[in-house]
Amino acid sequence: MVETAHGLVRSRAAAFDGATAPRLGQGWWGSALRRLLRHRAAVAGLIVIGVLGLMALLAPWVDRQGPTSQQLDATLSGPSARFWLGTDQLGRDQYSRLVHGARVSLTIGVLTQAVAVGLGLAVGMAAGLGGRRADALLMRLTDVAYAFPDLLMIILLVSIFGASVTMLVLAIGLVSWTTIARLVRGQILSLREEEFVLAARALGASRWRIAWHHLLPNLLGPVIITAAFGVPAAIFAEAALAFIGLGLPPPTPSWGRLVTDSFGAMFAAPHLVVTSCLAVALTMMSFTFLGDGLRDALDPRTPVRRPLPEADLMEEGERKATQRRRAA
């Protein structure tokens, strides 16, 4: 009896420990990817993000003219063959500025989440694995950071250190890690009790090996989901800061700057407001869709979203049954 149970644990543990994370995950990540690709909104989001990312990457080649070059004979002009999306107050091509702005805003969005994930994973794992005292200390710290109103902290930091891309990334990252830290700690506390961790420990795996090979792969899903939702939040924060006058200094063509500048020309050139607002909104929406898709794909506990939710299917079945009964 004991022998068999032991053998069972052993074989399962061997299966887990023998395979390194990628091989172990291949099937799982593969099926997650398939689930993600079935999520239509997420695919649409991915496409938009991909196109924008490419344009941002290739900005100097796909723009029509430099983001700061001025055509003073054509200020505040409407969309035309020469200026696809019109020009702003200083005769700068709106399309070119949007393309270059994508560089700035996407960089801020993605790097901010890198900072947040790094900090969150470090604090969360240290709290989850570091023993009772470290846990208490780190979680109280997280509580305080969580309680601090995000935008207030960002505004204070930016006022002190000045606005630059690096500073914005650090400031926004510094207020965004708490969710990830809490998530990671919570996951570790529950994963620690799982059989496969017990098995790994029984086989003599070191703490670090358990953390790296057994816990981390299981944490990545929720962390990736949180980061996907964090990107639009960071893009929003940049735009909001620019709008209240604390953003990146001109002439950096960030989307926040574009939105702010266009606001001044609201009456004369509404197309500027519409195009810059749509760029921000579309990108934020795409990342949110991607996050939704990732949540469905990576969290095996939530069932894959079908065209008809569970409740509808049941109702559907019932209705058919009733019809059949009536027909009979």
Partner: peptide, 21 residues
Amino acid sequence: TVGASVPSFILGMLLLVLFTA
């Protein structure tokens, strides 16, 4: 779906353009 991902001030600006400007 759309409303949950468009920030308030972007929406506010678009409203301004439409209803004021």
